[in-house]
């Protein structure tokens, strides 16, 4: 990292610290949520400067986009103002300050940023990069590690996302009652339909956002991208659509049943690819046996499970949004 980039990165991180202080200090939760969006963008830019393009893409789509919408949805149903406390929590402040100093003291033993002698760089990184070239032969090592080398881990994460989605639906309901089949489109739950300019712009942009989502999904082996990012981007475009055109229309485009099927189907597709490896005589989640050429088999496996991840993530995020939004309408 050149000095200029390093200084810019430090500048961004300083802004980030100021923003987080403001988030914790403000009593207005609405302001806090808006500042969270800024903090997310700053941290995404920092990730990009630290060479983590995939992570930056995810953080920008999830942190600045979907997370803000969810928090705002929750605020609309609770209260915007935080009650002022009776006294300043001196004990907590003291403990937090002491722990922060201990953590900072511990960093003096860390190898500095970018040091080649850091433990991460010693054995694992060269092995992953060499093996990706040799065994899988796709340019984006992040996708290869995510989908193939650490396939078990990712399966677990997808199931966690799925479970969290199911949990939200259990707590808040699926919102199916609010959109009873055949009910006429009412005007009072119609999002921003009265505002012409955002709607027209939304119509212009949503197809491009969807297109970007699919590009990120299917080009994820060659450039930054993959199922997690694509799922978040597609979900963001559908959420934008339902903000502009209203809940009911969005549920006409992708009905609740389809969303549930997406949540389950993605996880099942992922698991099925793993079982297919077993049936064809390999190990669970061993893609090499999927094709006569092991390298081709790996590429097929990665493509399929990335689709599974994308479907599940998009389904879960859209379902969560609908659950929050229909709670507000009821």
């Amino acid at each position: 990292m050149s000095t200029i980039t390093l200084l810019f990165s430090i500048f961004l991180l300083t802004l980030l610290m100021i923003t987080t202080m403001a988030i914790v200090r403000t009593r207005n939760l609405f302001v806090a949520v808006m500042l969270m969006g800024i903090a997310s963008l700053l941290i995404a830019a920092s990730f990009f400067l630290l060479d983590a393009a995939d992570v930056a893409l995810t953080e920008a789509a999830v942190g600045a986009g979907i997370s803000t919408v969810l928090f705002l949805g929750a605020l609309a149903l609770t209260s915007e103002r935080e009650r002022s406390p009776s006294s300043l929590p001196l004990l907590s402040l003291g403990i937090v300050a002491i722990v922060a100093l201990i953590v900072i003291y511990a960093t003096f033993d860390q190898p500095p940023l970018g040091s080649p002698s850091a433990p991460v760089q010693a054995h694992l990184t060269p092995w992953y990069i060499e093996s990706t070239r040799e065994l899988i032969d796709i340019p984006n090592v992040v996708t290869a590690v995510l989908a193939s080398f650490r396939g078990y881990d990712t399966l677990g994460e997808v199931i966690v996302v799925f479970t969290a989605g199911v949990g939200v639906l259990f707590l808040l309901g699926t919102g199916a009652s609010a959109s009873a089949a055949g009910a006429p489109l009412s005007e009072d739950n119609a999002g921003l339909r009265h505002y012409l300019i955002p709607r027209i712009l939304g119509r212009l942009l949503i197809p491009f956002i969807l297109l970007l989502g699919f590009y990120v999904q299917f080009h994820g082996e060659y450039s930054p991208g993959g199922g997690f990012q694509a799922g978040a981007i597609v979900a963001a475009s559908i959420i934008l659509y339902s903000l502009l055109e209203g809940e009911q229309r969005a549920l006409l485009v992708i009905p609740q049943g389809v969303l549930l099927a997406m949540m389950v189907g993605g996880v099942l597709l992922y698991g099925a690819v793993g079982v297919a490896g077993l049936v064809l005589g390999g190990n669970f989640l061993d893609y090499s046996v999927l094709d006569s050429d092991p390298v081709k088999g790996q590429q097929w496996g990665i493509l399929l499970i990335e689709i599974g991840i994308g479907i599940t993530v998009a389904g879960v995020l859209i379902s969560i949004f609908h659950a929050f939004a229909s709670r507000g309408a009821a």
């Binding site: 505002y195 300019i197 955002p198 712009l201 212009l204 942009l205």
Partner: peptide, 10 residues
């Protein structure tokens, strides 16, 4: 050029 005037309008 498309989004920022729209955001300002909204």
């Amino acid at each position: 050029l498309l989004t920022s005037p729209t955001a300002a309008n909204a």
